[in-house]
Write a protein that binds this DNA or RNA. Structure first.
Lengths: 175, 175
DNA sequence: CTTGAAATACTACTACG
DNA sequence: CGTAGTAGTATTTCAAG
């Protein structure tokens, strides 16, 4: 863990008993910085400083502290799935044959190599895993399904949910 | 749509008949640029130029073209969910009462306002929607479930799949 | 149509008050 | 936190491949 000190708001404004939301605990300026950088991090530091009404060095120090503290995990370019020829998204529920550690490990190792696999999570309930896979169209998904997904190790059942419309898909945390 | 011309590889190397993957169609340098920016876009342009063995101006022009073409949708800071006090992820399958346009519209409008909702998609199959919601812990999810999810308009059934382990969660497209 | 070298304008970063 | 100064970067211009 990292123990960098972060500026806290004077009004803690916590939700319920004994816990303060780390994001809400930030002061007004740090929140404004995060709001901006989550939306567009290609802004220059001087422009960012002007937006949050701070001098450039002070602003830069805050951004660096937010990175060092681990709150900002990284700054990345996002590729448009459609422009990348992967406009189709499929949610996949997976049930394994056996519930052994080896079985899970083998599946997880293989699942990460599935082309276009963006997410893969162990879940509770009627499925063992949920995956989110990006592909070009139904044809290419059908190929992926027949040639790769069905051959993932230890799979008993696969249920595919084709995404018809992406209502919301964000990396942003509200502030 | 944007019609900016992008550098194409001399070897198209397409998959199967009549289609070329837009990402694979890029030349070696553009792919190297995207690979880097998808991983860490906080790199300076001169450092990026050195990495891809190009002069700074030439490199900058390519990056700008990739943005203008729409392939790069944006550059953003990613917040670490755990550090933000939202270390728990839940996948939620939703079935609506009725399948009318009004019913769908009302649900979609409300779903986007659910605190911590990162994704919401219309899907085929036994559910109408899948949502991904980030929250602090099972307690806070229980509160969210009882106070918000159950009151989303037109909901017949909600099934929650708690994520026990995030195997893979990426915004990166392989190149 | 793209590249790289040089020149200029800004920006990031440091030292200090 | 801000001001002032320095170092380094982004960006334009232009000549050349």
């Amino acid at each position: 863990m990292n123990a960098t000190k972060i500026r806290t708001a004077s009004t803690p404004a916590s939700a319920s008993a004994g816990y303060t939301d780390p994001l809400q605990a930030l002061d007004r300026i740090d929140r404004a910085i995060l709001r901006q950088l989550q939306t567009d991090a290609s802004i220059s530091n001087v422009a960012l400083a002007a937006k949050v009404k701070l001098s450039a060095p002070a602003c830069l120090r805050r951004v660096e502290r937010l990175k060092e503290s681990g709150l900002i995990r990284g700054v990345v370019a996002l590729i448009d799935p459609k422009a990348a020829g992967a406009g189709m998204l499929v949610i996949i529920g997976v049930v394994l044959d056996r519930s052994t550690p080896e079985s899970f490990a083998a599946f997880e190792k293989a699942a990460q190599k599935v082309p276009g696999c963006m997410e893969c999570h162990v879940v509770t309930g009627e499925f063992d895993y949920f995956m989110a896979v990006r592909t070009r169209d139904s044809d290419s998904f059908n190929r992926l399904h027949a040639e790769q997904l069905l051959y993932l190790p230890g799979v008993r059942q696969i249920r595919s949910f084709m995404v018809l419309k992406e209502i919301l898909s964000t990396t942003r945390f509200p502030l």
